[in-house]
Write a protein that binds this DNA or RNA. Sequence first.
DNA 1: TATTGTTATACTCTATAACTATA
DNA 2: TATAGTTATAGAGTATAACAATA
Lengths: 156, 156
Amino acid sequence: MTDGHELAIALRAAYLALHRRSEAAFAALGVTADQFVLLAALDRGDALTQRELARRMSSDPSTVRAMLVLLEQRGLVGRDAHPTDARARTVALTAEGKSVLRQLWAAGESIRAQMLGGLRPEEASTLVAFLTRAARGLTPEAAPGPPISHSPEDQQ
Amino acid sequence: MTDGHELAIALRAAYLALHRRSEAAFAALGVTADQFVLLAALDRGDALTQRELARRMSSDPSTVRAMLVLLEQRGLVGRDAHPTDARARTVALTAEGKSVLRQLWAAGESIRAQMLGGLRPEEASTLVAFLTRAARGLTPEAAPGPPISHSPEDQQ
DNA sequence: TATTGTTATACTCTATAACTATA
DNA sequence: TATAGTTATAGAGTATAACAATA
């Protein structure tokens, strides 16, 4: 029997371990773990608006803005006017931002490897799928939906 | 194919969703999500030292101390001299702390239910087991060990 | 010598509310 | 009216380093 609290604590322990290891690995480059997540999200979808960036980071627009201010001071990101919406601003990595991001990927490589080290490839896929389903139940906009979906992703 | 970053992002999204929902649910009682974790840990092992409490919370002793100061001001926990070790102090819930904790369990019940809602019972157990294995690879003291351990703890 | 806890300090993330400008 | 972003503000968690007291 697994109750919700047990899952919550396991989730917390895993996330905090990852976060702490990442902070340590990125510290030499002067970047926090959360800033890395932001930079990586930017790299995968350049010229995002701040709102879209916040959504992809599971974060808050005003939080993202605070982070962007810090990253802009460090010269890693730049903000420009949006081409069609004069209210919005687009965010993109600078050349130095791209360079630092490459170093961050390298610095975090062993962490990701160690996290996956205790899992077979199919198990890692299953873990991602289950995490996604657990998260879906927690997001506000998520309609309750069918109570238990024995969906095809269960292949593992 | 699941790479480490994908897992990291899924883990982060699930944890942050849980954390945010918990903050909202506990706010009416004036307690944060992390403070709830501390109170729940105390309830399961009364009269812990601050160090042991920090370990069980996947947290840092000085962080725990800052949290304890806040909780002590609110009258939810008390600190007393350790019976045998004069350096240490034991931490325990006060009567009011126990009362508030009961309300917190009730306030968080639907969150835990929704998190488990998209998973069958065996899937929830598997999720906890996989999270634990992923976290084990990330803890500093963890010796690398056998690359893939199909250990007996994987039962249920 | 090592360990428990305290103190001082600093920084990041988080989030709300009121506001401006634009859609 | 609704949306994108800014500003001001506040608080919590995080962690390091130096320190005292005790083991």
